[in-house]
Structure formats: structure tokens, C-alpha cells
């Protein structure tokens, strides 16, 4: 199926008066990461005996080849005019990208603060912020929903399943008061 773009019958976009070129650029992020990682991998194993590296070398060569083919395809596509450089698929549109960045940023913050806040408080904070900013929930509903979820999370994951999260003020307080 990938061969479709190679077929020698590219519809002339100019004739149709619209841009039918497929975007490329954004789809190079993964190959670039793959190239960097593959090269790092090969460097990291250069001093090892063959048994520790043969499998990785095999995969690395295959990846280099595949990415090489991808590069050739991209260059030809650009020359022939079936591709255009366009990074926008990465973010789609700005409002949506902002929402995603916000959600991811909040998640990152909740992980960053977890060692001090503990599971319950960081989860509560994360959910509350997300409900307020993403869903625009009324404050009261958001507090109650986030609180109920964080508390059930505490009961299930900490009290029952004994997940070894670093304890925060809430966990310490409950432990001190009830001995759980």
C-alpha cells in the first residue's frame, strides 16, 4: 500500500487548483529520535563481546536501512511535488495543542510534586486543576469530584493495595490518626 505514492501517475495539483500535497516534516520526529537512539545504542555497546551486541546491531542496521528508504522517499516526494514541508500535524491546531500541553504540564507537575505532597494530595491537585481548566466545572463540583476520586484512590491504592508512594502530609496524618 505504501507503494501508492511511488506510482508514476502523480495528479498534477496545479491542474486541480488545490493543494493535494501530503505534509512531511512532522513525521520526521520519530525517525530522528530513532536515528539518535540507534547511534547511541551502538556507541554504548562498542566494547562488548559479540553475544551482547549481535541482536542490537542487526536491528540497528535494519533501522538505518528503513530510515534511509524513508529519506529517499521524502526527497523524491518533495522534488516531484507530492509532498510539502509542514509541521502542523504535530499540533493540529493551537487551541487543541494548548489544551493538550496544559493537561500534560499538569500531569508532569503532579509527578514532580508527588515526593512532597504524596499520592492523595498531588492527585487531588491534578484532578482539580484539570477539571477546572479543561472541563470548566463549577468550583464546588470540581472540588467534590476531585476529592472523592483522590480519596477513593487513597483507599484503593494506598490503604488496600499498599502501593509504596512516598507519604505526603495527608498519608502521614491518616497514619497518625488511625494507624493505617
Amino acid at each position: 500500500m505504501s507503494a501508492t505514492s511511488d506510482r508514476p501517475e502523480p495528479p498534477d495539483p496545479a491542474l486541480r487548483g488545490q493543494d493535494t500535497r501530503e505534509p512531511t516534516g512532522g513525521d520526521w520526529v520519530i525517525p530522528v529520535i530513532a536515528l539518535a537512539f540507534t547511534t547511541y545504542y551502538l556507541v554504548s555497546i562498542k566494547d562488548l563481546v559479540w553475544e551482547a551486541k549481535i541482536a542490537a546491531v542487526f536491528v540497528a542496521v535494519m533501522l538505518y536501512l528503513l530510515i534511509g528508504i524513508f529519506a529517499v522517499k521524502t526527497v523524491f516526494g518533495l522534488k516531484r511535488g507530492s509532498l510539502k514541508i509542514d509541521f502542523s500535524p504535530l499540533w493540529e491546531n493551537w487551541p487543541l495543542f494548548r489544551t493538550r500541553a496544559l493537561l500534560f504540564g499538569l500531569a508532569t507537575a503532579s509527578v514532580a510534586f508527588l515526593p512532597w505532597l504524596g499520592f492523595t494530595l498531588s492527585t487531588f491537585g491534578f484532578l482539580l486543576a484539570a477539571f477546572l481548566w479543561l472541563e470548566r466545572m463549577p468550583v464546588k463540583t470540581a472540588v467534590i469530584t476531585a476529592g472523592a476520586l483522590a480519596l477513593s484512590g487513597y483507599v484503593l491504592f494506598i490503604a488496600i493495595l499498599r502501593t509504596a508512594f512516598p507519604p505526603g502530609p495527608f498519608e502521614l496524618a491518616v497514619r497518625a490518626l488511625t494507624g493505617i
Partner: peptide
């Protein structure tokens, strides 16, 4: 209430 509980906890611990 939370601050108070937290303080109590710290005291106990």
C-alpha cells in the same frame, strides 16, 4: 482542618 490534622500528625510522629 487539613492544616490542623497535618500538624497533629507531625506532632504525633
Amino acid at each position: 482542618g487539613f492544616v490542623a490534622t497535618g500538624a497533629a500528625a507531625l506532632a504525633v510522629l
